[in-house]
Design a protein around this nucleic acid. Structure first.
Ligand SMILES: [Mn+2]
Ligand SMILES: [Mn+2]
Ligand SMILES: [Zn+2]
Ligand SMILES: [Zn+2]
Lengths: 150, 150
DNA sequence: CAAATAGTACAAATAAGTTGCATATATCGG
DNA sequence: CCGATATATGCAACTTATTTGTACTATTTG
């Protein structure tokens, strides 16, 4: 959890993106948030930007791999920071260039409504019928988060 | 795969639902489909019913446990028959009343676009951080299905 | 078969996300 | 620093999925 102060401009440069106030603000919110954000969340937190700009920024960040999409059965999309960005900012030694970033579990709390990336909890190996080829696996757990326990 | 001819009316009765042509047709489509269906799929296959009726039928079936919701990152919902209904219709001996219906894996083929319930492939045990309480687990695999392999 | 209850159609609304286009801004070479 | 170029933004309008209200119709039950 011990992070260097984020270098928004550097991150955007690294991903060959122009540095604009909107992109810096959006990225900053993701860096400071311990849980996933939806387009609506950003709209509420950054009302100075047009809805469309926020959607386009999210798409751009997805394409570049700054964010990942979190499937959700609530009819809208959640986004989380990519692991590579978290590791870049994490000043421990494990951010080596050949680190493998396994797919992690996503958790949605039915009490507080928050969706988290459980970055240290990876998806177990799955077995499929013969002849099925796996490209991507998503695992979403619903339950009660630590903070919401009675 | 060896099934008795479905008894639509009996199923609806069992779930304390009035037997209407719309519900029979919707249920019949699920019983005959080997993959999950969306509201739009039903709209296309059953154009004689109003969109709203189909949505309300899906909700009713979800509430009663005839169908289950399949999370999907494509912006709309898919539905699959519940395991209990499949087992009721399956004339093997395993449909005992105390059978456990484990959560199964869902598969979406990126080639043909179909989403299947892999009823015989259950979700492996997941480990979460201390203090997290699990209520429900969904696992969605994307890849290429058997029929779509080159 | 009639009363009670529940289901359906149609119109209209809402919510998430997208597209077209004109304007504004970031970047880069000079 | 400046202007050209490429790209980002804002606004309006659109699309798609889903929901809600309400009047009408069909199913159930005695
Ligand atoms: Mn995540
Ligand atoms: Mn299923
Ligand atoms: Zn919580
Ligand atoms: Zn396929």
């Amino acid at each position: 959890m011990n992070m260097k102060k984020p270098r928004l401009k550097e991150i955007l440069h690294d991903y060959q993106l122009r540095v604009t106030p909107g992109r810096c603000d959006v990225l900053n919110h993701f860096l400071r948030s311990s849980y996933a954000l939806s387009a609506k969340d950003l709209e509420n937190r950054l009302p100075q930007y047009d809805r469309v700009t926020l959607y386009r920024t999210l798409h751009t960040f997805l394409e570049k791999g700054i964010l990942h999409l979190i499937p959700h059965d609530g009819g809208f999309a959640y986004f989380g920071l990519s692991e590579s960005i978290r590791l870049q900012l994490d000043n421990t030694a494990r951010a080596s260039s050949n680190t493998h970033y396994p797919d992690h579990i996503h958790f949605t709390c039915t009490t507080c409504g928050r969706t988290e990336c459980l970055s240290d909890y990876m998806i177990p190996q799955v077995t499929l019928p013969q002849g099925y080829q796996i490209k991507d696996v998503d695992l979403l757990v619903k339950g009660i988060c630590q903070a919401c326990q009675v």
